[in-house]
Design a protein around this nucleic acid. Structure first.
Length: 802
RNA sequence: GCGGAUGUGGCGGAAUGGCAGACGCGCUAGCUUCAGGUGCUAGUGUUCGCAAGGACGUGGGGGUUCAAGUCCCCCCAUCCGCACCA
């Protein structure tokens, strides 16, 4: 019989469905194992060949764990709120919910066609009111604890669409949709205080098994730095506080700079003789597009405040204050002390504006020619009174101590991480469950009234003034205050795409619960996720956001663990055949449906795993995929050559035990490529030397997690009992993974001369004697003095001669 | 600029400091075939040599070691983040 993948795959997918064999139980005797992959955004384009790379990798882990007797939870769902759906809805006048439904149906059938062992009874959808009820509930808890707050904020504003854009929607400073200029506009936004968790988000990385690059990227993103705040008095009697990581250089501070948006500008407006020029500079900075702001090697610009100067607290010197956009309002205090001798940016500015450059750390070149920024022991303080002679390392704490004693400064830890802008002026997102009452302010909707569902609207277009489409729904907007009963207005902004995905893994644990986001028992049983795989692009977004929400839920006693994920890995991208990123415009997109249709899901799975190192990007190769199909054809063809035998034959014993070990270990370490290579080697041996039933059945079992359909079919044809997918995983005997006789390499002076066969436990002298008996070795050592003889049992003999 | 990663045949890629190139693709020759495709067999790092055999070889240069793709130092290239973060 010929291998017909369509017949085989459909047959077994139906059988698995009916047997419910991949459904997890909450509780029971077995040990739990929770494997998770990032749930997809069901886009209109359908599944990308990149999706199955991650899904198959953890499917292999999940299937193997299941065969090893674990209670495995491997769920799937839909992260379905988002812009593309909304835009499609606007363009085609279809309700986003309809679009979502269609896309989900397509994605689901595509995923099913791949034979992934998801527990579909736990399928979730972030746009389902029964789901987003709990997203809203979590938001309300954040609000009640003061971690959600409203703030005037500079946002990206598309001048043509007249709407607010997320950072991700701004590409090279222009609108992703229409290509128009994007400028900054101040709007009132809901914010989440993720910065309150900054330190814990760093610290707890020590307790989880995340791949190192994820940890590094998160730490860098949070961007912890230590230094000091210093209060400067102005000539007008005000105080200007700066943050610096180099308090040791305070004696070298020859001017100050404040950000154009710094409140002091308006506060001191009366005292500034050139307030018009300062305001003009501020307006100009605000008008700058992101494109201009990200331009490399920008020239320093600025305006000196005329009428107010500052006093350097260590030496009483009067120093000028400038406004410049190289100082950012969003970091530190929005003001700096400038030390041009020891900071590149300050140096550049000082050169342009003619500020004084005073060396306070010696050890570098002439500070008039370049700033000396080294912080190591090479720098010794000079021109700094009580700090003179100290190293930078010692001078920093000494200065902080001095500042604290005088009450004009203090040690300070800063983070680059900003609070999370949580508002979107969009329709297709979770409504923010708050109302605004003139008397009571922002009031949460009572929890028993959740979910606050999205109203039906006629059009999803953003309004002229950049408000959410919901703002036009006056019937919906106007409501009564739950607190005082007076008139109130609903918040019309919705939550960002990242909201629903920040806690979805908890919902899988107990997806149909209508009393809580999940029961205490379910949370206690399944937490934490044992293994989470996802893309690097989510490291500083979804992954960080969900860790933050989880920590918050832990603090309020909802979840039992500090961290949501015990282990995090990441897959490399699958590139187009030409080595470039797959995209419609590049015309290098591979359609997974076509691959499944032509070669079958098993070939597709095998190929995606065999394509290369899981963590690295790999180009698609239509030729290589044929090799995987060929392998499965040979697996199929071997069935008729199988001989009787219910134990491993002597000739294959070592191969069997060794391969069981290798495949098991590789599957646990995301090394599917080498596991498959080992299975190919095994198959080649079988073709070469014959195979018996016991050996073939073990082979099918080992291959099952990788190619589940064909192996189920062959298992059945060979008379295997029950479903192979839940059959026990084979075991091996370590002692039987090594041959009795091994081939050892013989080197003379490190150069390979020949190989010799010896018993595995043979002693060193025998190995040396055997090696010396070889003709080539004899010739190589003839007439030379033996200096050293090295024997590594089972590996190598190296004879050193002179 | 800062941070991270990567560099191995024609290609994707293997190698606890111990025979570099497993496995697959491709290619070459032979068999099968009217032919194409499939399948099977053998070969396939470079180079010198008729051959036996030798020399060279993991981005480049040094070093440690009996032995280095692997460890250490310096340099180069590519990719990915972040980017005036004081």
């Amino acid at each position: 019989m010929k291998y017909d993948h369509k017949l085989v795959e459909k047959k077994w997918q139906d059988i698995w469905d009916e047997a419910h064999c991949f459904e997890a139980e909450n509780g029971g005797e077995k040990q739990k194992f929770y494997a998770l992959v990032e749930f997809p955004y069901p886009s209109g384009q359908g599944l990308h060949v990149g999706h199955p790379r991650s899904y198959t990798a953890l499917d292999i882990v999940a299937r193997k764990k299941r065969m090893q007797g674990y209670n495995v939870l491997y769920p799937m769902g839909w992260d379905a709120f988002g812009l593309p759906t909304e835009n499609f809805a606007i363009k085609n006048h279809i309700h986003p919910a309809e679009v979502t439904k269609k896309n989900v149906a397509r994605f689901k059938s595509q995923l099913k066609s791949l034979g992934l062992s998801f527990d579909w009874s736990r399928e979730i959808n972030t746009t389902d009111p029964n789901y987003y009820k709990w997203t809203q509930w979590i938001f309300l808890q954040l609000f009640k604890k003061g971690l959600a707050y409203k703030k005037e904020m500079s946002v990206n504003w598309c001048t043509s669409c007249k709407c607010v854009l997320a950072n991700e929607e701004v590409v090279n400073g222009v609108c992703e949709r229409c290509g128009s200029e994007v400028v900054h506009k101040t709007k009132s936004q809901w914010m989440l205080a993720i910065t309150k968790y900054a330190q814990r988000l760093i610290d707890d990385l020590d307790d989880v098994d995340f791949i190192e690059r994820v940890k590094v990227q998160q730490r860098n993103w949070i961007g912890r730095s230590t230094g000091a705040e210093v209060d400067f008095k102005t000539t007008e009697g005000d105080t200007l506080t700066v943050y610096t990581t180099r308090p040791d250089t305070l004696f070298g501070a020859t001017y100050m700079v404040i950000s154009p948006e710094h409140p002091a500008v308006e506060k001191w407006a009366d005292k500034l003789k050139n307030i018009d020029a300062v305001r003009a500079y501020r307006e100009e900075a605000a008008r700058k597009s992101d494109f201009e702001r990200t331009e490399l090697n920008k020239d320093k610009t600025g305006v000196q405040l005329d009428g107010v100067s500052a006093i350097n607290p260590v030496n009483g010197r009067e120093i000028p204050i400038f406004v410049s956009d190289y100082v950012l309002m969003g970091y530190g205090t929005g003001a700096i002390m400038a030390v041009p001798a020891h900071d590149d940016r300050d140096w550049e500015f000082a050169k342009k504006f003619g500020c004084e450059i005073i060396e306070v750390v010696s050890g570098g070149e002439d500070v008039q020619k370049a700033a000396f920024t080294a912080k190591d022991e090479t720098g010794i303080l000079v021109n700094s009174d009580f700090l003179n002679g100290k190293t930078v390392k010692d001078a920093i704490p000494a200065m902080i101590a001095w500042l604290e004693e005088k009450g004009i400064g203090r040690a300070k830890v800063q983070y680059k991480l900003r609070d999370w802008v949580f508002s979107r002026q969009r329709y297709w997102g979770e409504p923010i469950p708050l109302v605004y009452c003139e008397k009571c302010g922002w009031v949460p909707i009572p929890e028993d009234q959740l979910p606050l569902t999205l109203p039906d609207v006629e059009s999803y277009e953003p309004t002229e003034n950049g408000e959410s489409p919901l703002a036009k729904m006056t019937d919906w907007v106007n409501t009564t205050c739950p607190c005082c009963g007076g008139p109130a207005k609903r918040e019309t902004d919705t939550m960002p795409q990242w909201a629903g995905s920040s806690w979805y893994f908890l919902r899988y644990m107990d997806p149909h619960n209508d009393k809580a986001l999940a029961s205490k028992e379910a949370l206690a049983y399944w937490s934490p996720v044992d293994w989470y795989n996802g893309g690097m692009e989510h490291t500083t977004l979804h992954l960080l956001y969900s860790r933050f929400w989880h920590k918050f839920l832990y603090d309020i006693g909802v979840v039992p663990t500090k961290e949501p994920y015990a282990k995090r890995t990441s897959h490399g991208m699958i590139l187009g055949e030409n080595g470039e990123k797959m995209s419609k415009s590049r015309g290098n997109v591979v359609n997974p449906d076509e691959i499944v249709d032509t070669y079958g899901a098993d070939t597709m799975r095998l190929y995606e795993m065999f394509i290369g190192d899981f963590e690295k990007a790999a180009p698609w190769s239509p030729k290589s995929i044929k090799g995987c199909r060929r392998f499965l054809e040979r697996v199929w063809g071997l069935a008729e050559k199988v001989q009787e035998g219910d134990a491993y034959s002597k000739q294959h014993e070592v191969l069997m035990h060794r391969t069981i070990k290798k495949v098991g270990e590789d599957a646990d370490n995301l090394k599917a490529n080498t596991a498959i290579a080992a299975l190919m080697t095994m198959l080649n041996e079988f073709y070469d030397k014959g195979v018996n039933k016991a050996e073939y059945m073990t082979f099918l079992t080992l291959l099952n997690p990788f190619a589940p359909h064909i192996t189920e079919e062959l298992w059945q044809q060979m008379g295997g009992e029950g479903l192979l997918s839940i059959a026990p995983w084979p075991t091996y005997d370590e002692a039987k993974t090594v041959e009795d006789t091994v081939e050892m390499a013989v080197q003379v002076n490190g150069k390979l001369k020949c190989t010799i066969k010896l018993p595995v436990d043979c002693d060193k002298q025998t190995a040396i004697d055997t090696a010396l008996a070889e003709e080539k070795v004899k010739n190589a050592v003839a007439g030379k003095e033996m200096v050293k003889q090295i024997v590594v049992p089972g590996k190598i003999v190296n004879l050193v001669v002179r």
